[in-house]
């Protein structure tokens, strides 16, 4: 859904996304790095249980709220760092996702 236009000297970082190790683009926000790698979903809505995607990418909408290193943070204002543990809890249902 998104492609990288400046592919020269792209650095990557190794992170863990939803329990799987992954190499993502470095030097950008967590959400941008996920979008660059083909991911559109950021979380399940705790109220409707349906998947959410980022909407504003400037820290306003809180749709990209996800668990980053154990804390619920806005993925669009959090810079990606190596060894980050990112959990979107996309497969959870009901009470588990209602935090």
């Amino acid at each position: 859904m998104f492609k990288q236009v400046d592919t020269q000297d792209l650095e990557t970082v190794e992170v863990v996304v939803d329990g799987e190790p992954r190499k993502l683009q470095a030097g950008i926000s967590v959400m941008a790095a996920l979008l660059a790698d083909g991911e559109l979903n950021s979380r399940l809505s705790p109220t409707s249980g349906k998947p959410c995607g980022p909407h504003c990418l400037m820290g306003v909408c809180f749709e990209c709220l996800m668990e980053i290193d154990g804390i619920q943070r806005q993925a669009c204002t959090t810079e990606i760092e190596k060894e980050m543990v990112i959990n979107r809890h996309l497969s959870e249902t009901g009470e588990n996702s209602h935090e």
Partner: peptide, 9 residues
């Protein structure tokens, strides 16, 4: 819906 984004985004 996922995929509806601000133009600014």
């Amino acid at each position: 819906l996922p995929g509806v984004m601000g133009a600014g985004a």
